[in-house]
């Protein structure tokens, strides 16, 4: 008894370790599952539509009698709405991060953060409703010619949605800058703003850049806001004052409709999602790489 218990216990211990490791492997399995589903369903698609045509065609009309499959059309919508969103989110997010990490202390900081958290918690479908029903009518007062569906108001609201995200990740990076650097700048006679902008910000730039890149990945993957407010008409355009479909819009539109399983139309959404996934993957890995490199460099200096 005295000798058997530890052995049984040891067996239990290693069984538990394997179980836990299995849970951790779920992350890898999920990625593999995503890749398998997307590639598996896209392969038949790319057998009937060449990759070249997919990448270079200037029309996207997969459900027409004469189907054309130029993903660039959808990507142009994604790019335009994302650029508008980032033009809002990056400057505002950076300014707020600098404000929170370098100026706001104690109670002030604690009272500002909930505003950001509230915004970060709004479901995107609600933001989509807001863009269509509130922001677009407001913008139409300034530009009466603005169509009811447009990339501009979707992009602006998407930018507001991403601000808390960029701000909080950038703030983490700014706070990680050692106090000794700030003191060095203050001791030379810098104001808080000068120290923040000229010393702290450059020192945290890798982390801030990672936040930006993750913001980009958020913007290109955002679905509901554009699906509701930007219109669903594929259009090759970089003009935010026009309506246009994004990659995500198209997927929702088709999945919601009654496209028969196994048809070419059904498979286009997987091909489109594959393009989106690869794009997001690129940005995510870039952000991860930037952060890891920063951590390594931080250890040396």
């Amino acid at each position: 008894m005295a000798t058997s218990l530890p052995r049984r216990r040891r067996k239990m211990e290693s069984a538990i370790e394997w179980l836990l490791a299995g849970a951790a492997l779920a992350a890898i399995l999920t990625t593999l599952g995503i890749a398998a589903v997307l590639v598996g369903e896209s392969l038949p698609f790319f057998r009937s539509v060449s990759l070249w045509r997919f990448l270079t065609d200037t029309q996207w009309t997969p459900l027409f009698a004469d189907p054309r499959f130029g993903i660039g059309v959808l990507l142009s919508g994604t790019a335009t709405s994302s650029l508008v969103a980032l033009a809002v989110a990056i400057p505002c997010g950076t300014a707020l991060a600098l404000f929170l990490s370098e100026f706001a202390v104690g109670p002030l900081r604690e009272s500002v953060k909930p505003i950001l958290e509230l915004l970060a918690g709004v479901p995107t479908v609600v933001f989509g409703y807001f863009a269509l029903d509130v922001v677009t009518p407001l913008l139409q007062k300034a530009w009466p010619a603005l169509p009811g569906f447009n990339l501009l108001s979707a992009g602006l609201v998407m930018g507001v949605m991403i601000i808390p995200y960029v701000a909080s990740l950038s703030e983490d990076a700014l706070r990680a800058v050692p106090m000794s650097l700030r003191e060095g700048a203050y001791a030379l006679g810098a104001t808080r703003l000068q120290a923040a902008w000229q010393v702290v910000f450059p020192a945290a730039f890798s982390g801030v850049a990672a936040a930006y890149v993750l913001g980009v990945s958020r913007a290109i993957g955002e679905t509901m806001i554009v699906a509701i407010a930007a219109g669903q008409q594929p259009r090759l355009t970089l003009n935010p004052f026009e309506p246009a479909a994004t990659v995500t819009t198209y997927i929702v539109q088709v999945a919601k409709g009654d496209v028969p399983h196994g048809s070419l139309g059904y498979r286009t959404i997987f091909a489109a999602a594959l393009a989106l996934f690869l794009l997001a993957l690129t940005f995510n890995l870039a952000a991860d790489w930037i952060r890891r490199r920063q951590r390594l460099r931080g250890r040396i200096s």
């Binding site: 000794s180 650097l181 003191e183 001791a187 030379l188 006679g189 000229q198 010393v199």
Partner: peptide, 27 residues
């Protein structure tokens, strides 16, 4: 800030800025 513009300080641990050697001094 006037006091700091007129009085210099060197810290316990070296704390150069993440800039070039030249820019550290020019700052």
């Amino acid at each position: 800030i006037e006091a700091r513009l007129r009085i210099g300080m060197v810290f316990q641990k070296p704390n150069p800025f993440p800039k070039s050697v030249f820019e550290n001094i020019a700052y």
